[in-house]
């Protein structure tokens, strides 16, 4: 008993009091900002460097966070113009909004296109079933951490559950391998409607580094609309929690 008290005393208070305002270490690779115009030749140069095809050149220079693996090499190549900030709010319910362009100060949610039942039903309680479909186990680790003693998203009634039958939606990590495609579909079908689909991590959103691999099967997305895109390599627990909160309107 005395030993336990000592352990508890050392443990102290670990939870992050404010999950929306918490500040991460300065080097955390979060939302990039593009400070100045990037010339065509610079853009071509960066495009060549980028390992995951995340540089957009149509309609002006942009970084697509749905493809970006946050290696920061574009910043190293162009330090005066591109800077990765420690802002962990990176997600959107619209795929196009993940493209960051010059002067952008945040990633926007499109409030209009959120299905009304999502906020009506899930605002105070959201149970999710996670499916790893080729994930490298780092996003999976971070999703576990979102519920741990530090981040404790349970305080908002958000929880991962064991059975899809108990879930209000599915959270997919990984680029969706051919070998997991069927299990993913079965799990989705087993989740009662209305339900949401959340993609966590760059791999899930675009295939990431694996997008050209013949071992993937992303047909799932031909038939199902995604409700929330959460970029990251992996997505930080704060990125995940804030994304969900923004979706359910809290």
């Amino acid at each position: 008993m005395i030993k336990e008290m000592k352990i508890l005393k050392q443990h102290g208070i670990q939870f992050v009091p404010d999950l929306k305002e918490a500040v991460l270490t300065p080097l955390f690779r979060g939302r990039p900002v593009i400070k100045e115009d990037i010339s065509k030749s610079e853009a071509e140069h960066i495009k060549k460097i980028c390992p995951s095809d995340a540089i957009v050149t149509e309609g002006g220079f942009g970084i697509d966070l749905g493809k970006c693996v946050f290696c920061k090499e574009c910043q190293f190549a162009c330090p005066d113009k591109i800077k990765f900030t420690n802002d962990y709010k990176l997600s959107s319910n619209k795929r196009e909004n993940l493209v960051v362009r010059k002067g952008y100060k945040e990633i926007k949610f499109d409030e209009q296109s959120i299905r009304p039942e999502i906020r009506k039903l899930f605002k105070n309680s959201l149970k999710l079933r996670q499916i790893s479909a080729g994930g490298d186990n780092s996003c999976e680790f971070e999703l576990n951490a979102a519920g741990n003693v530090n981040f404790d998203m349970g305080r908002y009634g958000i929880e991962f559950v064991a059975s899809p039958r108990h879930a209000d939606g599915i959270v997919i990590t990984g680029p969706i391998t051919e070998n997991m495609a069927e299990a993913l579909q079965i799990c989705y079908d087993a989740t009662p409607s209305p339900k949401i689909i959340v993609l966590v991590g760059t791999d899930a959103i675009s295939g990431g580094m694996f997008k050209d691999s013949p071992a993937l099967n992303r047909d799932f997305f031909n038939n199902h609309a995604v409700d929330l895109y959460i970029p990251g390599n992996p997505a930080h627990p704060l990125t995940f929690i804030n994304a969900i909160l923004a979706l359910i309107g809290r």
Partner: peptide, 23 residues
Amino acid sequence: GYQHRGIENLFVNENEGLKRCVL
């Protein structure tokens, strides 16, 4: 086998050092 992403072959196809390292 469920997690098979064909990663070994990507090291061969991608002949850029950074891609390989990120992979």
